[in-house]
Design a protein around this nucleic acid. Structure first.
Length: 376
RNA sequence: GUGGUUGUAGUUCAGCUGGUUAGAAUAUCAGAUUGUGGUUCUGAGGGUCGUGGGUUCGAGUCCCAUCAACCACC
């Protein structure tokens, strides 16, 4: 994997770059659609590529391990073959599930004992096992196995948890060296900065992570319920320490304005369930603001979903029709809303790249954000 | 025409031998959602109990009439 910075903004830490992987190049900053179980819910790989112009998607180690299972993924020849996605894939390690499935797991030094949310069976996830699973999945970018502490959490707990995440990282790195790539192409490990919302712990974690000198770095443990200002503050601390010549990935973020603000802090990669999950529930992001398509006011609005988002779903279907689909609970409604939101996100980061290149990013961002936050 | 059954929220229905402010589901309206267990979660509005009389301290509930729908028989 190779990362090349192409332009640095003058009035912020924003930058553009190109990330080269075994499955193709990614222009950064980039947003990565989330396909937890190997599918971006409701959207085919063809649509993701041709209409949405997605360059890389996510999978989830924990979810794919439980279903369909590692043996099937290996027999398929890896996730790229299995789900017909030939561009890059990044897999989350399952660390977030330590947080989101908190009632179903027990954390130990060795690893995390999960109870399957599907059938209640017990599974021990160790750093080593998580690396092996991500090898089997065939992810281009594999995430280190971490613990994502909740918010709020006591300093003492976050400190111990973060130290354990660092120890787990060393085990991930060692395991990666010992295990060959199954499918003949390079797979890269990204470690994850933790530290909760404590400035000194964040700084310490970022320094620890930077020292490991991996090919890219991630910031985790944010967007777990903390106020946005704290999220930006933690992101800023980490960005100032993580090496400039390596891609920085802010995990689980965010709303469109979060993405622009974080780009300004020096983030290159994002993933978030918001465009798809909220889209399935009728929330649309547009250039003019936020639409709840289920609201009655759209019933007779025969204008396009969003003229300014350059995708056929946004331009060829009306708000009134989309509302009808939602009220009738038609599958197509969730699909169109998801496609539109992802197009909006991918177009947003594309515009951000252009604005950075032309040194107009900061003012563009500041005038766009209030517009995007408005509720229509 | 005769006999019977049923009329309660937009809809489908609960509501005991009469007893505080008539409930549920669903629909409607509106919020929420940040490394996805989820077509999810939260909240709000919505009723002259078919209509009109009567009995009673008190009627969705009992009585009479009437209207409507359905069923059976002429």
């Amino acid at each position: 994997m190779k990362f090349t910075l192409s332009h640095k903004a003058k009035r912020s830490n924003a930058r553009t770059g190109v990330l080269q992987t075994a499955h193709g190049e990614i222009a950064t900053p980039i947003f990565m659609p989330v396909g937890t179980v190997g599918s971006v819910k409701g959207i085919s790989s063809e649509t993701l590529k041709a209409e949405i112009n997605a360059q890389i998607i996510l999978g989830n180690t924990y979810h794919l391990y439980l279903r369909p299972g590692i043996d099937i993924l290996e027999k398929a020849g890896g996730l790229h073959q299995f789900n017909n996605w030939s561009a890059p894939i990044l897999t989350d390690s399952g660390g977030f599930q330590v947080f989101s499935l908190a009632s179903n797991r027990k954390i130990k030094e060795e690893g995390v004992l999960f109870r399957s949310h599907i059938d209640g069976s017990k599974h021990l996830f160790t750093p080593e096992r998580v690396m092996q699973i991500q090898r089997s999945i065939g992810a281009d970018i594999m995430m280190g196995f971490d613990e994502c502490p909740p918010y709020p959490a006591e300093r003492r707990y976050v400190k111990a948890s973060t130290a354990r995440t660092h120890r787990w990282l060393d085990r991930c790195i060692a395991e990666l060296k010992n295990s060959p790539a199954l499918y003949g192409y390079e797979q890269t490990l990204f470690p994850i900065v933790q530290g909760g919302v404590y400035n000194d712990l964040r700084k310490w974690s970022a320094e620890e992570i930077a020292e490991r000198d991996c090919q890219g770095n991630a910031i985790g443990g944010v967007s777990v319920g903390e106020p946005p200002e704290l999220m930006y503050e933690m992101t800023d601390i980490a960005c100032n320490i993580l090496p400039e010549d390596k891609p920085r990935y802010l995990m689980g973020v965010g709303y469109p304005w979060d993405i622009l603000e974080s780009i300004a802090l020096g983030i290159d990669m994002f993933d978030c369930v918001v465009p798809t999950r909220n889209g399935r529930n009728g929330m649309l992001f547009t250039t003019d603001g936020i639409i709840n398509i289920k609201n009655k006011k759209w019933a007779e609005d025969f204008s396009a979903i969003d003229h300014q988002t350059p995708c056929t779903s946004s331009q060829n279907y009306t708000k009134a029709y989309l509302r009808h689909l939602f009220m009738a609970k038609e599958i197509l409604g969730m699909q169109l809303a998801s496609i539109h939101n992802l197009c909006f996100y991918l177009n947003l980061v594309k515009q951000a790249r252009q604005q950075i290149q032309s040194d107009t990013f900061a003012q563009w961002k500041d005038q766009l954000i209030p517009k995007m936050k408005k509720r229509l």
